[in-house]
Amino acid sequence: MKDYIIRRIIIVIPLLLAISLMSFMIMQLSPGSYLDQMRLSPDISENLIREMEADFGLDKNIVMQYFSWLGQILQGNLGESFTYRVPVSEIILSRLLNTLILSMAAMLISWLISIPIGIYSATHRYSWLDNIFSIFSFVGLSIPNFFFALLLLFSIVRFNIPLPINGMTSIMYDFMTPLAKVIDILKHLLVPAVVLGTAGIASLMRQMRGQMLDVINKDYIRTARAKGLTEKRVIYKHAFRNAINPMITIFGFQLSSLFSGAALTEIVTGWPGLGKMMLTAVRSKDLYLAMAGLMMGSLMLIIGNLAADILLAFNDPRIKYE
């Protein structure tokens, strides 16, 4: 097991290098550069644009640019954002925690709700409650997040519900007691977390239901029942343990979204997370900021996968890594 983990970690290095090379090239080879916005401003001369190009190092060839960026990264320097002119790490740090709070809350909501519902739906297949859950999950799957968020915000305004509609803290936040601060953030968290959470519930619930249905019809479940085990024991000890494996893999994938944020939901609810910032960075070609975001996402994806594999080994004694 230990050897396996070490081997996996060693593989990460060339993988990350390849990902970074790919994303750097794609960023650079797509048309336009960060300075394009400025090219359309009547006040800015060609000269100034050329000076800035040189200042940012955008006039060198792409391979050179890549290696100098790589060199910086290896020294722990993520570079400087073109837009903000401050180190990329500072910009990301200022929003990292906010994104983490939101993604964790959303994940918690979606997993805590979807797993029990999935199991219930599978064991009570085609009951009226199962049908209601199915309808709910299809609606949840098909409704776009930003639209759902707008609907919620609109109802808050229309029906005068005492909930905030924008941001993460209220105006008086700085003058609150610590407890009031926590409550304030939770209030603000409600809409975005529910929006992102329900989007997750729908698909997770269907997954869980499908997996459970697969397992429930297996021979060993029949055997367990025939042995006279209680239904609870059959479901949770025998069926659930076998059905959960694919869910663990999904969990690993979801870990990667912890830091990448959810741009549209963040924009609509005004949550100061990383998603919107990274979207702007990619679109405006703020190279180093966008690269840092992409690399962070990739790293989390790799770590998430690794974590999922290890969890799988714990859950399922049949899986052994040599």
């Binding site: 707008l150 915000l153 609109f154 808050i156 305004v157 509609i165 924008n166 941001g167 105006i171 924009i267 609509v268 609810t269 005004g270 100061p272 919107k276």
Partner: peptide
């Protein structure tokens, strides 16, 4: 003078309608 950052114009309108 407090200037709330509302990146979506929909939210901007809702903030006003909500009296904020």
């Amino acid at each position: 003078w407090i200037r709330i950052i509302a990146e979506s114009q929909e939210t901007d309108s809702l903030l006003f309608e909500n009296g904020q």
